[in-house]
């Protein structure tokens, strides 16, 4: 594999097919964005539910989070792909990937959102209640805007994991970057070095700027806002 990386001939063969990789990279980016949107929506809804005063929404949110967090993502992806057709839901591999990854990370984001909401001092919700805001209005105008600021770092963490986890699509045969790389390398020319290296570089190019930005944001937040630093600490304890 190392020799292949150093061999110009191998690179020439690989580069002849570069559009295939670009296309697969596009699929990975697209799946990441769609799954992220789904995960954020689920995360906010279930995160808010798990801070409710009522037991039913709390239990539903708890069940979702525990079921997802305590089984492997790969299993979930297989279940979506293999079991759903039996109940009449037919989806392509890419759609299954979006749902599986979105639902999986939705559970983690729900926990981030829950911890974020709980780190906001109770006086905020009381002030809103004393003004006559309903629960949903209080969340929308008072609590969630404050939550966003402090949950951004763990949220970015989840985004990075989500991007990497879209590679689960390879297992159910979708044409994402991971699967295309594996397919291309194991069929025909038996050239492994260049494609796997490029595959890794492409994932890195997506994830590294994001995680760097998240880390810098967290440092800046801690520096300029002592109040936020304490909430952040509480959040980290809560999540660990």
């Amino acid at each position: 594999m190392i020799e292949q990386i150093l061999s110009p001939e191998c690179w020439l063969v690989f580069l002849a097919d570069w559009t295939l990789f670009l296309q697969a990279f596009g699929v990975t980016v697209m799946v990441s964005i769609a799954a992220l949107a789904l995960a954020l929506a689920l995360g906010v809804v279930f995160g808010v539910m798990s801070t409710s005063h009522y037991r039913l929404p709390r239990s539903v949110a708890r069940a979702y989070v525990e079921a997802i967090q305590n089984t492997p993502l790969v299993l979930q992806a297989y279940v979506f792909y293999l079991a759903l057709p039996y109940v009449g839901v037919m989806m392509g591999q890419v759609s299954v990937g979006i749902f599986a990854v979105g639902i999986y990370h939705g559970a983690y984001i729900a926990e981030v959102v829950r911890a974020g909401i709980q780190s906001i001092p109770r006086g905020q919700a009381e002030a809103a209640a004393s003004q006559g805001f309903t629960y949903v209005q209080t969340m929308r105008w008072v609590i969630l805007p404050q939550t966003v600021k402090i949950i951004l770092p763990p949220l970015v963490n989840q985004m990075v994991n989500l991007i990497k986890n879209t590679s689960v699509i390879a297992l159910i045969g979708g044409t994402d970057l991971m699967n295309r790389t594996n397919d291309w390398a194991t069929s025909g020319a038996s050239i492994y070095g260049p494609p796997f290296l490029v595959c890794g570089v492409l994932y890195f190019l997506l994830c590294f700027p994001l995680s760097t930005w998240g880390r810098r944001y967290e440092e800046r937040l801690k520096k300029k806002d002592h109040h936020a630093e304490q909430e952040l600490k509480k959040l980290e304890e809560e999540l660990s």
């Binding site: 905020q124 002030a127 004393s130 805001f133 209005q137 105008w141 008072v142 805007p145």
Partner: peptide, 28 residues
């Protein structure tokens, strides 16, 4: 009918003074 002033102020830190004062009049 009523509004409240708290010991710990409980102003909304993500909003300016103006934002704090206009939130309820606008939304409610």
């Amino acid at each position: 009918t009523s509004s409240m002033v708290f010991q710990q102020f409980n102003l909304y830190p993500h909003l300016t003074v103006m934002g704090n004062l206009t939130l309820a009049p606008i939304k409610l």
